[in-house]
């Protein structure tokens, strides 16, 4: 797995400070960790004392709406894409950014294809776990392949309509 970080607005291969912890396994004492939604719902009491950043993983059928009040507890949310036909988390990502105000890392996991990254980015993802064997340089080149956006989304990209009708900015006297 290679992690591509887009957190500061330009994509780069990054080391991963996080550990995805399987259900039932012990959380590392010294590293930020993610747990499944199920584990969070079942045993959050045991987790509350921890002083390290916590992340949560959602499978494609799971809904973030189940735990909205808990969102401030998470520094990272990982949304899984099991295959190319399951696009539910494109919606989840937008809602997290645009409606629920999530500011932490939003990470795409699973079958993250190079050719979906531009779309994921527009939906608010800022980290991408490339499956093993996929060319990271090629994935980085995929950012910004399409520079025109026709519709508003979670990123700050101005839409075509906004660009067309933008009032000319008055030059400031210096």
């Amino acid at each position: 797995m290679t992690l591509i970080d887009y957190g500061n607005g330009s994509p780069a291969i990054a080391g991963d400070a996080w550990t995805h912890v399987a259900d039932g396994a012990v959380l590392p004492p010294d590293r930020p960790a993610t747990i499944s939604l199920e584990r969070w719902k079942a045993g959050r009491d045991g987790l509350t004392g921890r002083n390290l950043p916590l992340g949560i993983r959602l499978e494609s059928h799971e809904r973030i709406e189940e735990i909205l009040p808990d969102l401030p507890r998470f520094a990272l949310i990982a949304l899984d894409f099991p295959n190319l036909n399951d696009g539910r988390h494109f919606t989840t990502a937008r809602l997290l950014r645009e409606r629920y105000g999530f500011r932490g890392q939003l990470r795409a996991t699973g079958q993250v294809l190079r050719d979906q990254i531009d779309l994921m980015k527009r939906c608010g993802f800022d980290a991408f776990e490339l499956p093993a064997g996929k060319d990271a340089a090629s994935a980085i080149a995929a950012f910004g392949e399409i520079s025109v956006a026709y519709q508003p989304a979670a990123d700050a990209h101005p839409t075509a309509a906004q660009l067309r009708h933008r009032q000319p900015v008055q030059a400031m006297a210096s």
Binding site: G87, F90, Q116, L119, M120, C123, Y150
Partner: peptide
């Protein structure tokens, strides 16, 4: 047409 073209959220519908 413009709104739906390369819509980031709705490119992988059911």
């Amino acid at each position: 047409r413009q709104w739906s073209t390369l819509h980031p959220e709705f490119s992988f519908l059911p």
